[in-house]
Simulated scan of single mutants.
Amino acid sequence: MPDFAARRTVMVDSQIRPSDVTKYSIIDAMLNVPRECFVPDGREEVAYLGENIPLSRGRVLLDPRCFAKLLDALDVQPNEVALDVGAGLGYSTAVLARLAEAVIAVEDEFAAEAERRLSDMGVDNAVVISGTPAEGARRHGPYDVILVEGGVEQVPSALTDQLKDGGRIGALFMEGNLGVARIGYRAEGVISWRPIFNASAPVMPGFATVRQFAL
């Protein structure tokens, strides 16, 4: 049986700390949430590699560095409510649940499986909503923090409207094969985006720019 606890430590020491992620809460969460329990069955051996893990078409589990740096920039507080958009099999939700007061995860393909895995891990301050990620979960908002778990070309206003004034949203904006992670800050109803670091991930369904074709 592989020593996954040792692999978590190596992941943090080789991928997270060298990327200037220093917040103890993030380090602690990523040391304690078993990533191998939230990857597709049979893929446990690659759980701690420094790369995105495919889940389905256009969907990945973000690589540890990208995920941790987004969390670091979002600076999630213990009294905040977070929306996890496109939670996949639940890893990001489990980590966020250790940082926030409560987490609402919205997921379409893997909602039931994510809920089961989070329940197996004893995560009791997170709820998985079966729905379209790009539409968020308005009924439970507004949110202090929104994290989009994949690439985007645009973020629909239906989603950003669910962010509180003073709240933050993190997303990975893709242009072709190149991407820039940005944090959006909402003030007086307007979101200002700030670039944080370079990364790459497939564009999630519902987050592509609508192309206009002319004859």
Score class of each variant (00 low, 15 high):
Asn52Val: 06
Trp193Thr: 03
Gly86Ile: 11
His140Met: 13
Arg168Cys: 12
Gly90Arg: 09
Pro18Trp: 01
Arg43Ala: 13
Arg138Ile: 08
Ala73Lys: 12
Ile191Glu: 05
Asn198Ile: 09
Asn32Pro: 03
His140Gln: 13
Ser25Leu: 06
Asp72Ile: 04
Glu113Leu: 10
Pro202Gly: 09
Val21Asn: 11
Glu45Phe: 04
Phe207Ala: 08
Leu49Gly: 08
Leu74Ile: 05
Pro18Met: 03
Ala134Ser: 15
Arg65His: 12
Arg182Pro: 07
Ala94Leu: 02
Ala208Trp: 07
Thr160Tyr: 04
Leu49Gln: 10
Ala214Gly: 08
Leu147Gly: 06
Ala47Arg: 12
Val190Ala: 14
Pro78Trp: 01
Arg43Thr: 14
Met30Ser: 05
Ala100Arg: 07
Ala199Gln: 07
Ile104Asn: 05
Asp63His: 09
Ser200Met: 06
Gly90Ile: 00
Val81Phe: 07
Val60Cys: 04
Leu74His: 06
Gln154Phe: 01
Leu159Gln: 04
Glu113Lys: 06
Phe173Tyr: 14
Leu70Met: 15
Asp84Pro: 03
Leu118His: 02
Gly88Cys: 03
Asp3Thr: 06
Gly170Tyr: 05
Asp161Gly: 13
Asp72Gln: 14
Met11Leu: 06
Gly167Trp: 02
Ala29Gly: 13
Ala5Phe: 06
Ile196Phe: 07
Phe67Trp: 04
Val190His: 12
Val33Tyr: 04
Leu49Arg: 03
Glu44Tyr: 01
Ile129Leu: 07
Asp108Ala: 10
Ala47Glu: 12
Gly150Gln: 05
Thr132Met: 01
Val203Arg: 02
Tyr185Asp: 07
Gly131Arg: 08
Met121Asn: 10
Leu74Thr: 03
Lys69Ile: 09
Ala158Glu: 09
Leu31Phe: 00
Ile53Pro: 00
Ala208Leu: 12
Arg116Gly: 10
Val60Leu: 03
Pro18Val: 00
Asp20Tyr: 15
Ile183Cys: 02
Lys69Cys: 14
Val10Tyr: 13
Asn79Thr: 08
Pro156Met: 09
Arg182Ser: 07
Gly150Met: 01
Leu70Pro: 02
Asp3Met: 08
Leu215Cys: 11
Asp41Met: 13
Ser19Asn: 12
Arg98Tyr: 10
Arg182Lys: 15
Gly42Glu: 00
Asp41Glu: 15
Val152Thr: 00
Gly166Asn: 07
Leu96Asp: 05
Pro205Asp: 15
Val10Ala: 14
Glu175Gln: 09
Ala73Thr: 08
Leu178Thr: 14
Ala6Leu: 11
Glu135Pro: 02
Leu61Gln: 02
Val123Lys: 04
Cys66Thr: 15
Gly58Phe: 00
Val127Tyr: 13
Arg59Thr: 01
Ser25Gln: 07
Pro34His: 14
Tyr143Asp: 11
Ile104Met: 05
Ala5His: 13
Gly141Trp: 14
Val12Pro: 01
Ala97Tyr: 08
Glu101Arg: 11
Ala199Asp: 06
Pro78Asn: 06
Ala102Tyr: 10
Val95Thr: 00
